[in-house]
Write a protein that binds this DNA or RNA. Sequence first.
DNA 1: GTCAACATGATTGTCGACAATGTGTGAACC
DNA 2: GGTTCACACATTGTCGACAATCATGTTGAC
Lengths: 222, 222
Amino acid sequence: MNVDNAAEALSTNDIAEKIKSRIHSGAYAPGQRLIEVDLADEYAAGRGRIREVFKTLVGEGYLEFEANRGVHVRRFTRAEILEMGRVREVLEGLSARLAAELELSADQRTRLEAHQEAMNRAEQTHDVDAYNSENFSYHATICAIAGNQHVEQFLHRVRLPLYRLQLPRNFSSDSMTTSNRDHKVITAAILSSNPDAAEAAMRAHVRAGNAHVMRISEQYFS
Amino acid sequence: MNVDNAAEALSTNDIAEKIKSRIHSGAYAPGQRLIEVDLADEYAAGRGRIREVFKTLVGEGYLEFEANRGVHVRRFTRAEILEMGRVREVLEGLSARLAAELELSADQRTRLEAHQEAMNRAEQTHDVDAYNSENFSYHATICAIAGNQHVEQFLHRVRLPLYRLQLPRNFSSDSMTTSNRDHKVITAAILSSNPDAAEAAMRAHVRAGNAHVMRISEQYFS
DNA sequence: GTCAACATGATTGTCGACAATGTGTGAACC
DNA sequence: GGTTCACACATTGTCGACAATCATGTTGAC
């Protein structure tokens, strides 16, 4: 497309981040094959560097590798997403548990409450986009409070398919209310340092989300 | 050491497997730096290929990368192992739950029972090595029955530090009895299709193992 | 018209060479 | 003797070239 893809020197890490964000945004669509020389050209790098980035992104679950065919953007079937959903259930549950086990700092409490209130506002004003966005931040915040690197890393991986399914109609105004009811229970459990309740509520919450995936139209899985 | 490292052509995959097994066996010790040109020489490959293998193994948690310093074998602190232990707890729990949710085939029942009986025998004969080995197979079997790719993959990652800690004295004859008591409960829960019981028992079992790690001498973490 | 064999182009697989970076050693100076 | 600078060595970072492989389209025989 662009003729002037001269660009300045990008570090190998920058390239990886750019490719990831293009996958998230859908600029690189699920199933799309990525040609080494094209990207090398586009990012002003040699093929070797692109290849190494590919290997890293395969490891992170963004790309899939096929011998002598290179890589293509990972495509998730409904069955795979549900399989990942089961894992997400227990990991989000652990995340909530770990957060509830800690004595939260004032700052952590404030952040958690702020996200909860933002979701409450979005719910009342029926702002689906805002709710969606805050929903992600909320879960990320709990994960950050939990402070377990592996939980964070693994959760990121099993959440990958959701980013692409993160469409406005993913939340109807109705399911938004249901979802936020769960959030309030989780928030309360964490703030009152009740690990068992926090984990149980979070697991139920994610399980409900998975049930939602089961009802989504087949077209989204292409 | 060897002068005659001529060797035949190894596929890139073979190289990755060989490096992994050397890490497991301790031939490449935790913290040891791996020099690209040395391995390229040893495995009769170019440096580029070795670099790509490194990227893959970093992604799998075997190696750690440092800018301009290459890679070294991942070293786990006690705190990290305990952090991974928390994740292992819920993932092994999920593994047991998923297995218990299924209608097991005759073959699956047989395999599970065979491992349980092998552990029983090892317990009675106080054969710590056999018990250790069967213990790993037992957990792997449950995981295989569960049939969730992500559970399997993630569990493999959080089990990594245990392979190196898999030393004879890891199980005293006493703790072997305690451990196997858990196993019997888990096996029964899976065979009788009781997911809640299976998960709860497995979580308690892993939690006990983590408590054991907390008491291990500091020397093992080097 | 159909199919096989072949030729061709596109893409990945692999290597070696050179540049950039970091590390350690030794000499010069205070 | 101790500190600092500079040089040499070891190692990683990057690229371009060539070989191997795969996909596709074309030719020719039946």
